[in-house]
Each structure stands twice: as C-alpha cells, then as structure tokens.
Nucleic acid binder design. Structure first.
Lengths: 177, 177
DNA sequence: GTCTATAGGGGGATAGAC
DNA sequence: GTCTATCCCCCTATAGAC
C-alpha cells in the first residue's frame, strides 16, 4: 500500500463505528456514506457490496487479533501465558474498539454470510487459550477456555464503554484469573 | 392467563429463534409469520409492531433471569454464592437459549429502542455479582464482576451451541472460578 | 382471530456526468 | 475517484373480508 486510499479508510471507520452502536443490519449505506463524508457512489466504488465490506472488516479484525496474540505468546515468561494472551487481546480492543464490538456481537450468530471464517477464527482463539492454560499448569478443558474468552471479552468492553478509568493491568488481572 | 393465546406464543418463539440466528434487524416479520405457521396479519394482531415484540421478548427474558438468580442467591450456602448465581444463570439459558442469545447480542448496543431497560438490567446483574463475590470473600471490583459475567455468558453459549455434552456442573466450575 | 391484498417508504445497488 | 439521480425490490404496517 504505497498510497493508501483515504476515502476507503474513512468509509471503513464509519461503518465500524455505526455497526458497533446499532448492528450491521440496522446500519444503512446512506448513513455510512454520510458519516464518512462521501457520497454513496464512493462507497460502492471502494466496495463491491455492503456485505463484502463487513466481511472484510470482520476477517481483518480477527486476523490482526490472532497475529498480535501469537506474537505476544511467543515471548511470554513461564506462568504468564494466559495473562499475556488476555493483555494482547485487550490492547487490540483499545486500538479498535468498534471493530471488536462488531465481531463480538456477530460471534453468537449462525446464519450470517461471514460465519464460516468467524467460526474458524473462534476455534483458533479457543485452542490458543487452551495452550496458554496448559502452559500455566491450569485446567484446560473447552469450558475453561470459553470462560477466559468470555471474561476477557466482557472486561474489555466494560473498560472501553463504561469504565475507561480501569487500568489495563486491573483488567488483565480480573480476566486472566 | 386462564387461556393463553397459542398463536401469540408461537410467534414469540419463532421470533426468538430467528433473531438468535441472524439478529433482530435481519429477521423479517414475513419470516417470523411463516416460521410460526400464521399469517403476517396475525403477528400484527398480537403485537403492536416488530419493535414492541422484541422489546417484550428482551425485557421478559431479563426479568425472568433476575428473579431466578435472586431466588437462588437467597438460599446459597456460605462460600458458594458465585457458583449459585452462575448455576441459576446457566439453567436459564438451558431453558430458553434463543432468548438468551438475543439478549446477549444486544448487550453491547447503545442505539436501540430497548436499550434503557437493558442497561438497567445490566447494572442489576453486575451488582448482584459483586455481592456474591463479596459473600465468597473474593475480589469484587467492577472488572471482577464483568469477568464472571462474561465467563458465564460464553460458557453458557459454548455449552448450548457447540458442546451440548458439557455437564452443567463442569460449566459452573469453569465460569465461577 | 385469522386470513389476503396492498399501501407506502426505505434500502441496496447502478448509471453516467464530471 | 467522486458525485447526483434513479431503479426496483422488499420490508413494515394497514385495510378489510371472512
């Protein structure tokens, strides 16, 4: 990307922000265009369809999160694997909370166009968490991985949406325990 | 309710099931009517609007969950308050998983008609959890309550959607720890 | 109470000038 | 690349027969 398309990025940001507040289906392309400060035609110049746009948003967010977590885990000291994963995840939410919210709300849905890649990423997340639990010598069944995943998701949003004064380390401590 | 309206209940069930899979906005009244086996006119005979119907669904589900949890907590033995809350919550999801999924996905949204009552119920849940944490002699900051809430939500859905063989007590143990 | 038919509006998407 | 104008479908909601 030598010269990144600025309109395209403005559209993606507006789309993420709106969908985080109202959901994807309730967000219209007119709203996205207006919030991004471009005409609707420009949205369709940059993206094939609304659906393709949100598919991209979701898979990109998941991929970035997975990369970030894997990198952090490689350098984790003994006994801190889970905390390291949680910290990396929370930092990702800090960086792009809207995208995180969109992904989180789509997480439970089954009948969606982008569901396949989402389910695959969900599995990656869970097995990464199970690995981390094993490395820390903790219980590591599916339900334990699910518990940590849910905890870090909810703590992350509580922090971003309702309690911005909560420190990162306080959040990590609560979610990783 | 001497003679409960059967059509009305069929409509509500279908509406919950469809919205759990696709989200509320993506679910059409035509689909709801068809899945319930009634005409669209009958949907509007029983409910003022689609929005009113889902508002009812959500507030009812939250109220039932709150009642169930408060009752369970009253009878909890020392040191088992958190596990008791989690167990009551998971049993509620077992009973009506679709309604639980609808509520969970709406939990993060800010721009929705039913948001006010949802936010109020969210606060009730959090303070109930904080009480339980205190009673068990555990850390009880907002982030700790959020962690337990997220854990029980995610474990509940993991169990209902992907791992039905997971026992209730295994789920409770993972989410309450 | 339940149906069919239809009104009315808003949504995604495209065409074509600049 | 960005805009305006427009198409056309589908969605919510209503009217009115039975």
């Amino acid at each position: 990307m030598a010269r990144p398309n600025v309109s395209r990025q403005k559209v993606l940001d507006a789309a993420a922000e709106l969908a985080a507040a109202k959901g994807i289906s309730a967000t219209t392309v007119d709203e996205i265009a207006s919030a991004a400060g471009v005409a609707k035609g420009s949205v369709y110049y940059n993206f094939e369809s609304k659906e393709a746009m949100y598919s991209l948003l979701i898979t990109d967010a998941l991929e970035r999160a997975a990369l970030r977590i894997r990198a952090a885990l490689n350098n984790a000291a003994d006994g801190t694997a889970v905390a390291t994963v949680v910290r990396a995840f929370l930092m990702g939410i800090d960086e792009h909370p809207a995208a995180g919210k969109v992904v989180a709300t789509e997480m439970f849905r089954l009948d969606r166009p982008w569901n396949e890649s989402l389910a695959a990423q969900r599995d990656v997340f869970f097995s990464t968490l199970q690995d981390a639990l094993v490395r820390d010598g903790r219980e590591s069944s599916v339900s334990d991985a699910a518990a940590v995943f849910g905890a870090m998701l909810m703590v992350g949003f509580e922090r971003v949406v309702f309690s911005p004064s909560m420190s990162l380390e306080r959040a990590v401590a609560s979610a990783a325990r």
